[in-house]
């Protein structure tokens, strides 16, 4: 490639990065505006909106509610996903491809449709809309990611590790908890954090399956429909900072553990 195309491509990259980051930066900035309505220019500044977020009991409750849903649905997705990955790795059997395909399907079903399918199914089963319905739909949606990540990691575990443990007197269950699980830890942390972020950020499933209590994205959505205000900016900014910190932490710790285990 010529030097010109290289420069051009680097320009495209930075323009794209700007396109991604600038709106978020401006959004954070707007949370400091000392006025009720959103818009530029910002003439006077205040911290009140941010303080308000932490004082608002509804926001704090919703934050806790979303976190709880994220943790529980992630826990389910991790158990199910790891189970499926362990079942499908290193075995050839009739119907394996079908099970794998069906397992991965929820990742590509359009969001609205899966939300509506769950809504109808929950009604048929008699599950009230609310926390458990949301948790279940999030878990189903997140299992494919866990399966993919865990299967990738599992395929690099030498067969001899499990065999050596069996040889020394371990039954398959002990092998899983003492050999396989420690090896999978980095993958499970990574997949788990990714699932938590997906669940915490999910709108469409939480919206269609929610009861009276909104999750955080649903709350922001409701506030947005009644008008933009710096309050929403402050809430969004808090969410943004938390998710970014969690994401970066997960990425780093995953790398560290992986390096340690692979040395």
């Amino acid at each position: 490639m010529t030097r010109h195309t290289r420069i051009l491509m680097s320009c495209i990259y930075w323009a794209f990065a700007l396109y991604l980051l600038l709106p978020l930066a401006l959004m954070m900035l707007m949370g400091f505006k000392d006025a009720r309505f959103i818009g530029f220019p910002i003439t006077s500044w205040t911290l009140d909106w941010y303080i308000g977020v932490f004082a608002d009991r509804q926001v704090m409750f919703t934050f806790g509610y979303s976190t709880l849903i994220a943790i529980l649905s992630t826990a389910i997705a991790l158990v199910v996903g790891t189970w499926i990955a362990v079942t499908l790795t290193g075995r050839a059997f009739f119907g394996r491809a079908v099970i794998l395909g069906l397992t991965l399907l929820p990742a590509v079903i359009p969001g609205v449709i899966s939300a509506i399918a769950f809504r109808i199914y929950a009604r048929v089963l008699g599950i009230e809309p609310g926390m458990w319905a949301i948790i279940w739909s999030h878990a189903v949606h997140n299992v494919p990611f866990v399966v993919l990540v865990v299967m990738a990691r599992l395929s690099t575990l030498p067969r001899s590790q499990a065999e050596a443990a069996r040889d020394l007197g371990a039954d398959p269950l002990v092998v899983f908890f003492r050999i396989t699980m420690p090896y999978l830890t980095p993958a499970m942390i990574g997949a788990g954090v990714f699932c938590m972020l997906l669940s915490f950020d999910d709108f469409v499933r939480s919206y269609f399956l929610g009861g009276y209590d909104p999750t955080l994205p649903v709350l922001i959505f409701a506030k947005l429909r009644s008008g933009m205000s710096p309050e929403v900016n402050a809430i969004s900014t808090v969410v943004l900072v938390l998710t970014a910190v969690l994401g970066i932490w997960a990425e780093r710790s995953m790398r560290r553990i992986k390096k340690q285990a692979n040395r």
Partner: peptide, 14 residues
């Protein structure tokens, strides 16, 4: 009651 020494030793890395 037999034990094995594996080709790659299969020591548990953790």
């Amino acid at each position: 009651k037999v034990n094995m020494v594996f080709q790659d030793y299969a020591l548990f890395p953790h």
